[in-house]
Amino acid sequence: MQPEQLIVLRRADIKAAIVIIIVSLLMIFESASFPLTDSYAGIQNAWYVSPALFPILIASILLICGVTLLFKGLAFVRAHKEIPVVRASQASRWRFVLLVSLISGMVFSWVPLIDFAISSFTFLFLFILAFYSDSPALQHKVLTIWTSVSLILLVLYQTSALSEGGRNLLDWGALLFAALMVGFFRQWAINLDCFTKWKTSVKTALIVTLVVCPIFRLGMLVPLPTEGIVIEKMVDAKYLIRDMWRGN
């Protein structure tokens, strides 16, 4: 490892060690509130059967390790003050923010609220297009649109209990959004001279959604997180075909 990288690592070690020390102290503090030698649920506790024993033990060792890491990091940084610190590029940071936004938006906002097939398609299309096109302008656009929509969905999910009709309406809205995104980014792709990549993104997102959802829902009988206007119709179609096959 280069000295420039090592100094960055040791500085990060110091920050991590401080977090570890704080967390282990909090853990010990919280564990102290667990029944130690008093009675719980009618049972007289001894220290060696207490639910606090293991967490206190782990947190104490973690605390020692944290302190050791802190001293090691401090000693290294003090001894190598002259080495300059290299920072990650701005573009790389943006890509990181976009990745976290895409994954957390999908999990925290789309999956609990929108039909899984629609969520999957939209997520895959925007995710693939943003990184396959490798255009910072397009990535910024995706970040802004996806984060805004995900935040709206999150607020909606947290603040209101939606009826079935409301959920269906939301699914239709999401489907319209997906179609709009496909159309909107088609123009962008043409302008950026990456129309083939746009086509690949649409195709991959569609094929994966059409393969994965039926395999999990119909093949492995795993219920999908949210089943709305697409998945419900797919399940209905399965039983309709089965009944027709059996001649009912």
């Binding site: 994954i103 999908m106 999957s120 997520f123 895959l124 995710f127 693939i128 990184f131 396959y132 690949t200 993104s201 991959t204 994966v208 994965v212």
Partner: peptide
Amino acid sequence: IFLPVVTL
């Protein structure tokens, strides 16, 4: 192309 599918 592959990693978004892996994420799903």
